[in-house]
Amino acid sequence: MIFDDRPCSLGEGPLWHPTRGELFWFDINARTLLSKAQCWTFDLSVSAAGWIDDARLLIASEIGLHRFDIASGTLSEPIVAIENYDSTTRSNDGRADPWGGFWIGTMGFNAEPAAGAIYRFFRGEVRKVVPDVTISNAICFSPDRAYAHYTDTATKQIMRAPLDPETGWPNGATQIWLDLNEADLSPDGAIIDADGNFCVALWGAGCVNTYTQDGTLLASHPVAGKHATCPAFGGADLSDLYVTSATEGIDGPLGENGMIFCLKGIGRGQKEHQVIL
């Protein structure tokens, strides 16, 4: 079903705020943050968010990470800079981790090869954790806190990085966890549910696929948007799957492309982790 019929050029970054019971998402190309009731437009490209508390979000932009006051619509100056020296790159996929940190990927505005990276912000410090990324996506965390997953969409491979149990920093060899080249699928945003299943939106395929922890395809959930971009679990019991999509690259009538979809009773999501500043 359609959750919101405002078409996004590049819908991304859905976030179910657990204390507000509210979905937020972005249209990257329009520089906007949206909720069901509101829309905020900024002077910067914005793409991903985490929740700080009931009143504030942490928002990633092309120059860094900002506090955002929901009631006033005020975006702060960056609390930390990320690639603010490079006007050719922007933020893309991002998510809070179980330790209260925030991971954010960057990429070139025109998806220039290896122009981006993935960073982690934790306790006031930013470190680059993955260099030379073309299209950063699918940043998410296993419920046992053992692994981070991510992809460079251009490779069609989902990577898995072991994490230090105390700090959440990567602490071992990163491996290819799921290779989608043979299936010719392009992974975009992803989320891991409470049972450890990996749910990934597939650009160009109009669906979200769910894979078990060993990489076996468990289910495929179609949506009306050809370019599905990112899923997020939400609703009162976190069983509904919200999926953003894009009109970018669609020729002819747009139909339901770019809209936000809600798939009822799909699974059992993890509560989104709180960002601790």
Score class of each variant (00 low, 15 high):
residue 104 I to F: 03
residue 217 L to C: 13
residue 271 K to N: 07
residue 165 P to V: 02
residue 96 A to I: 01
residue 222 P to M: 12
residue 97 D to L: 09
residue 168 G to F: 05
residue 51 W to L: 04
residue 79 I to K: 01
residue 99 W to Q: 01
residue 75 L to S: 09
residue 31 R to V: 11
residue 82 I to K: 02
residue 32 T to D: 08
residue 30 A to W: 00
residue 137 N to H: 11
residue 79 I to M: 15
residue 175 Q to I: 15
residue 58 L to N: 02
residue 177 W to V: 00
residue 165 P to C: 10
residue 3 F to E: 04
residue 93 D to V: 00
residue 65 L to N: 05
residue 87 S to H: 11
residue 208 V to C: 10
residue 256 E to K: 12
residue 206 G to F: 12
residue 252 G to E: 13
residue 37 A to Q: 15
residue 10 L to V: 07
residue 12 E to V: 06
residue 50 G to Y: 00
residue 87 S to E: 15
residue 238 L to K: 09
residue 10 L to D: 04
residue 141 F to P: 03
residue 143 P to T: 04
residue 113 P to R: 12
residue 198 F to A: 08
residue 257 N to W: 03
residue 24 F to H: 01
residue 258 G to M: 09
residue 18 P to H: 06
residue 189 G to P: 04
residue 268 R to E: 11
residue 21 G to F: 08
residue 236 A to K: 10
residue 266 I to F: 14
residue 47 S to Y: 06
residue 104 I to H: 10
residue 58 L to Y: 05
residue 198 F to H: 14
residue 179 D to T: 08
residue 50 G to M: 03
residue 243 V to E: 05
residue 53 D to S: 07
residue 208 V to R: 09
residue 95 R to Q: 14
residue 38 Q to L: 07
residue 247 T to D: 05
residue 10 L to R: 02
residue 18 P to G: 03
residue 9 S to V: 15
residue 233 F to L: 10
residue 175 Q to F: 08
residue 63 I to W: 05
residue 212 T to F: 10
residue 159 M to S: 10
residue 261 F to A: 15
residue 264 K to Q: 15
residue 46 V to M: 08
residue 223 V to Y: 03
residue 42 F to C: 02
residue 118 I to H: 00
residue 183 A to M: 13
residue 139 I to C: 02
residue 181 N to K: 13
residue 157 Q to D: 01
